[in-house]
Measured scan of single mutants.
Amino acid sequence: NQASVVANTLIPINTALTLVMMRSEVVTPVGIPAEDIPRLVSMTVNRAVPLGTTLMPDMVKGYA
């Protein structure tokens, strides 16, 4: 099973992502692959992402 990116904290809308905000976890449904974490750093989220939420491609500006 592939690990996905999961919010390690509440990420407010329009926040630039940092490494400490994200962790990898095997979850269903599958979200952004964990190997993309380095690429996500400094990208911003377009909605509030609660703790434990899987990051989906449409949640990160410029990812999809």
Rank of each mutant, 00 (worst) to 15 (best):
M59K: 02
S42Q: 13
M22D: 01
M59A: 08
P12I: 06
L40Y: 02
N46P: 03
T18N: 08
N14S: 08
I13T: 08
S4N: 02
V20Y: 07
M56R: 07
T53N: 12
V20C: 05
V5P: 01
M43D: 03
M59R: 03
V30C: 03
T28G: 05
A3S: 10
M56Y: 12
V5Q: 01
A48M: 12
P38F: 15
S42L: 11
Y63M: 05
A7S: 11
P50Q: 10
V27S: 05
L40R: 00
L51F: 11
Y63K: 03
G52K: 03
P57W: 09
P29A: 04
D58S: 11
Y63T: 03
V20I: 10
N46E: 08
G31V: 02
V26Q: 12
N1F: 11
R39E: 10
A48L: 13
M43H: 08
A7C: 04
L17H: 00
A34G: 09
T15H: 08
I32D: 01
L55S: 00
A64C: 05
V49T: 05
V49Q: 02
L17T: 00
E25Q: 15
Q2S: 10
I32T: 01
T54F: 02
D36Q: 12
L40E: 00
K61N: 15
N8R: 11
T15M: 08
S42M: 14
Y63I: 05
M59F: 12
V5F: 02
R47W: 07
M59N: 05
P57L: 05
M56Q: 08
M43R: 12
M56H: 06
R23D: 05
Q2K: 15
V45L: 08
A3G: 12
Y63S: 04
I37R: 09
A7K: 02
T44G: 05
P12L: 07
A16K: 11
P12F: 06
S24Q: 10
T28V: 11
V49A: 09
I11C: 02
R47F: 12
S4M: 02
V5D: 00
L51H: 11
E35G: 10
I37Y: 03
V49K: 01
A64D: 06
L10M: 14
M56T: 12
T28C: 05
P33Q: 06
P29V: 06
T9F: 06
N46Y: 15
T9H: 14
D58K: 07
S24L: 08
T9L: 14
K61Y: 13
V6R: 04
T28P: 00
D36C: 04
G31W: 03
A64Y: 06
P57Q: 07
V45G: 00
V41I: 11
T54A: 06
L40C: 03
R39S: 15
M43G: 03
A34F: 06
M22R: 00
V30P: 11
D58T: 14
L40Q: 00
V26C: 04
S42W: 07
T28M: 12
N8E: 09
A16Y: 12
Q2M: 12
Q2I: 15
